[in-house]
Design a protein around this nucleic acid. Structure first.
Lengths: 336, 336
DNA sequence: AAATATCATGGGAACATTCCCATACTGTGG
DNA sequence: CCACAGTATGGGAATGTTCCCATGATATTT
């Protein structure tokens, strides 16, 4: 594996100076004669010298690298967060190493090992649905490497967390339906043991309560988010003696599929029944009718998380349990 | 920045052995007494020892890291490629560092510098639309670091390239329309100076020729892919004295928007006019009617590219100008 | 019993760089 | 002209690991 790499020693030998002088010239240290510096810089340029971060990091104990682990990168959700994180990291001189746990606990653990071995200065992570044991993350804290959680956070660990205010967004969009005159609003929710499902459902219920609408358990469906079973639930709702005049779906894919199912039955949206989703996926604006939903501040989440991480790296020790709640925003289209 | 890191020397001191012995035990070298090895392994576990890849890489001159630079990660296109690349890289024991050039030449150059400084063993890249100068990439070759291009390739450089066979896919989907009995097939194409637009258009024209259908220049529109202007072009086609009975769009967003525009005019799809897209975006199956399109083997592209890269790393020197053309596959839905 | 092989371990160079300390030189003020 | 400040440079330790070579100790062969 000859890499033909030019080192400062090569440059030093060629110019009959010491490696110290070359190092100084290359790092912009003032204590070096301008003439010498110019010669060194010129030769470095000519020989396409690239500083070897490995040895620098070995000495300085900083890699200027942040790790980010996300559970998937297929949808646009995490890429948007990554973009935000990248922007802030880059501005602060950090390099971002992206890793995908693929919603698999073992892969996540393996990813953290790689991050540790590669000495990242800090870690951003959104855990998988399977992650229940956090030993692979507490080890970072024991080694004083800051960790910041985002989106899917770990309640058991003392670390800054950045999340979306699901309760608030669910409340807002339910309120919108109520203000549009809807009286019987159904909820197609996710599994109750999933925190985000629970929060969204609670926001929905709280809103119904505020406007003194009855909370009809018959109108609340908690399913496992497997779209294959959705037609059963949607048809069940539509077949009720007193069917709903609106549906608030726990996420956009559910809402979009519900639209398909409802249209198949010949009902008009939003005239016969209104549908709203959650998170403003790429497809939300493309379906017919375009879906009213809540857009989540994903880039903002990435920015906030990496800023918190960088802050922690810079003044190590003052680790606080900051929990940032970011608000979503109503995106009004035609489905409600 | 005290990181409290455990080193092999710490372990060696504690157990009264030399660092060489610890190193041997930890790397699974056979020449170490089972009893000694067990003691070392146990203490390493207990102290949460993590090998420092920086120093290992410094010696071995291999980081077991591959870099991948993509022009964007907002759409699902590149994430799919990355997934494929990641799978192969992981299997071969490589870590993948993902970088986003954001369709900006300067960022791409900066990204390559970071990759060089961090000593990646090889680079996968899909260049930005702006990239015309390739000095930041030829430097990799001069330092004998293999480079593999994918999707957006550089014709000027001798390196393996993995691309999608746009001509073939365009041909296939045009052929499908013809076999469905369509006689006047329009093409909503991209700018002619963009290579992929050109290839897709050529596939379309070649297919018409093969089936002895006239190539009517009036039915071919080359636009700048800015969807805002699309209604003008679509309406222009529909207002022709002899309007088309099918439209082949250069990509899915164009096709999806065309569907919206056509439905607004009260025409039925596919009865009045058939629409097909290109690349099977996430939204293609969700629109109404679901879009017939060509799915591109994106994960396959990532896999092939990283395999080619790893092959090159392993038997350095035998760099060949392999160009792999991957075939797309018809995805038949209801819009045609 | 001597010669040789096998095994377990230790010592130290090497990797590319930073950074502290030392040193030689120049110039300035008393 | 000596003391001292300031400047430019060199030397070498240190970073954490691998890997080659050396060195005893034990086992096996002749």
């Amino acid at each position: 594996m000859k890499k033909n790499l030019v080192t400062i020693i090569d440059i030093a030998r060629q110019l009959n100076v010491s490696k110290s002088t070359v190092s100084r010239a290359l790092t912009g240290h003032p204590r070096v004669h301008p003439e010498t510096r110019d010669k060194i810089l010129q030769l470095a340029e000519e020989w396409e010298y690239q500083r070897n971060m490995l040895s620098i990091s070995l000495i300085t104990k900083r890699t200027n690298t942040l790790g980010i682990i996300v559970p998937e990168i297929q949808s646009s959700f995490f890429p948007k967060v990554i973009m935000g994180a990248q922007e802030i990291a880059e501005k602060a001189g950090y390099n971002l190493v992206i890793s995908n746990s693929n919603e698999c606990y073992e892969t996540e653990v393996a990813n953290t090992k790689v991050m540790l071995a590669n000495q990242v200065d800090g870690l951003l992570i959104s855990i998988t649905k399977q992650t229940l044991n956090f030993n692979h993350l507490t080890i970072f804290q024991r080694k004083s490497i800051p960790v910041v959680f985002f989106n899917r956070v770990c309640d058991e660990m003392d670390a800054p967390k950045v999340i979306v205010d699901d309760f608030d967004s669910a409340f807002k969009i339910t309120e919108y339906l109520i203000k549009k005159g809807r009286k019987r609003i159904a909820h197609l929710g996710g599994p109750v043991n999933l925190k985000i499902s629970e929060k969204r459902m609670n926001g929905y219920i709280a809103c119904l309560n505020k406007y003194q609408l009855p909370v009809d358990r018959e109108l609340i469906i908690n399913y496992d988010l497997n779209l294959e079973k959705l037609p059963i639930y949607v048809n069940h709702l539509l077949n009720l003696g007193n069917p709903p005049d609106a549906i608030f779906a726990v996420n956009d894919p559910t809402a979009i599929d519900a639209i398909r199912i409802i249209k198949k039955r010949g009902l008009r949206i939003p005239d016969d029944i209104a549908i709203v989703g959650f998170s403003d996926d790429y497809a939300a604006s493309l379906v017919d009718p375009p879906l009213t939903t809540v857009s989540l501040p994903l880039a903002e989440m990435g920015k906030t998380a990496s800023q918190l991480l960088i802050d922690q790296i810079n003044h190590e020790g003052q680790r606080k349990i900051i929990i940032k709640m970011l608000k979503g925003e109503l995106v009004i289209r035609e489905s409600a």
